[in-house]
Write a protein that binds this DNA or RNA. Structure first.
Lengths: 98, 98
DNA sequence: ACAATAAGTCAGATTTTTTTGACTACCCAA
DNA sequence: TTGGGTAGTCAAAAAAATCTGACTTATTGT
């Protein structure tokens, strides 16, 4: 069942809710992501959940999926401009956790 | 099952995840909250969920529960200092949703 | 004295999210 | 040509979150 959004910040908050999204986002800030790589980096996670999270982050426009057509032909996920715009929010959040 | 926290912002993010917390927080910024009031204000919500959310927000130290011992003896929930510290994060988030 | 309101709790049902394991398809190296 | 890596999908199970309805206790207003 689809729900209406009353609180404006909630949409953004929801974008980063879910068990693995914040961690994925944090890693994406550092460098482009690759699927199996992520699976190894994020201990406790699993294919399906990561696949879902990546797809959602992509649909939300925070990550973009890029097929690298060179040398060892592979796929990368990068932060979009919209994704980068969230970095300061994260930083502020991290500042508060100290 | 309890999970370890790897991403620092995730703890904060988790504090405000859940279907009603962001909305509750937003209303708390405006004025002190009262239970049955909230139940009427947030359409679609229910006792149990609000009770749970309020308890969690309290445990996280973002809200404080106060028994008003005057006139019509009742209970109020107010933002704590820690809760107020989150206001700028919310504002930033809301700025991004435009 | 009576009914309504406030502020919940509790158990069980339902829904949503997350996890598991099996299975694809494609490329690359030995 | 066989084995390993990459990047997934699918169905089903398990776990977590949310909702429902009945019930409680205490305080008010009339």
């Amino acid at each position: 069942m689809e729900e209406k959004e009353t609180c404006p910040a909630q949409r953004l908050l929801k974008m980063l809710s879910g068990k693995w999204k914040a961690e994925i986002f944090r890693l994406a800030v550092e460098s482009p992501l690759r699927f199996n790589n992520l699976l190894r980096q994020i201990q406790g996670s699993n294919k399906q959940s990561l696949a879902t999270a990546l797809k959602e982050l992509e649909e939300e426009g925070l990550l973009e999926k890029i097929t690298i057509k060179l040398k060892p032909l592979h796929i990368e996920y990068n932060l979009t401009e919209k994704g980068k715009a969230l970095i300061p929010v994260f930083q502020q959040l991290e500042g508060l956790s100290q």
